[in-house]
Simulated scan of single mutants.
Amino acid sequence: MRFNFCLAFFLLTVFCSSALAENFTKGDITVESPWVQKSDTGEKRAEGFALIHNGGFNADRLVSITSDISDHVVIHETIKQYGKVKMQKLKEPLTIEPNGYLELKPGDYHFMFFNCQDELRDGEFVPAVLHFEKNGDVKINFAIEIKDDKPDNP
């Protein structure tokens, strides 16, 4: 039990990088500190991240995501294969175990927003709806964070 608490505390501190990010709860599901960043490929895409907690006694599945800012949004997985990194759309919903966490983070599972219609501005928000199998729709706002292109070491 202590390990779960420590793990949850660690994950929360990782995902609380934005002071503007909020938590969103419906039923047993809490979406913690969702944030989005513009893709560094130069295309009109963005990547979204969050920590999702299922506080219930039954597993639930994250089925899909929708947002008015994008033509379509999919749940992606980053895969390393043959020395290369690629992203692919998930074929099956992601399961969140009872009292478990699902972490969507850079380099792993994430939301991919395609053909974003508006310019993403630091400090603003992207509204979206996460669709869960058992807990239904959870309306959230992703805090927009713009990458700092400056290197860490001058």
Rank of each mutant, 00 (worst) to 15 (best):
M1G: 08
C6Y: 09
A8R: 06
F9T: 10
F10G: 08
L11R: 02
T13I: 05
T13V: 15
F15T: 11
S18D: 15
S18W: 08
S18K: 02
S18F: 11
A19G: 10
L20K: 12
N23D: 10
F24T: 00
T25R: 10
T25W: 12
G27I: 14
D28R: 04
D28V: 10
V31Y: 02
V31A: 00
E32N: 11
W35K: 01
V36R: 01
V36H: 03
V36I: 11
Q37P: 04
Q37K: 04
K38T: 12
D40V: 12
T41H: 04
T41M: 04
E43F: 05
E43S: 10
K44I: 00
K44Q: 06
K44R: 14
R45I: 08
R45V: 11
A46L: 11
E47V: 02
I52E: 09
G56L: 03
G56I: 08
G56N: 03
F57A: 12
F57R: 12
D60P: 02
D60W: 00
D60M: 01
R61S: 13
I65A: 14
T66F: 01
S67A: 15
D68Q: 09
I69P: 03
D71K: 11
V73Y: 06
V73K: 02
V74F: 05
I75M: 05
E77S: 08
T78L: 04
T78I: 08
I79N: 07
I79A: 07
K80H: 11
Q81E: 15
Y82P: 02
Y82W: 10
Y82N: 15
G83C: 03
K84F: 09
K84M: 03
V85M: 03
K86W: 05
K86R: 04
M87P: 00
M87V: 07
L90H: 09
L90T: 03
K91Q: 07
P93F: 02
T95F: 00
E97A: 05
G100E: 11
G100W: 12
G100R: 12
G100I: 09
Y101G: 02
L102C: 11
L104A: 12
L104T: 03
K105Y: 06
K105V: 14
K105E: 12
P106F: 06
D108P: 01
Y109M: 10
F113M: 05
F114H: 02
F114R: 01
N115L: 14
C116I: 15
D118A: 12
L120Y: 07
L120W: 03
R121F: 10
R121Q: 15
D122M: 13
D122C: 11
G123L: 03
V126H: 04
A128W: 07
L130I: 11
L130M: 14
H131F: 01
F132Y: 06
F132E: 13
E133N: 01
K134M: 02
N135T: 14
N135Y: 01
G136Q: 03
D137T: 00
D137Q: 06
V138F: 01
V138W: 01
K139Y: 02
I140H: 04
I140A: 02
N141T: 00
N141M: 04
E145F: 13
D148E: 12
D149H: 04
K150N: 07
K150P: 01
K150D: 10
P151D: 07
D152K: 05
N153S: 07
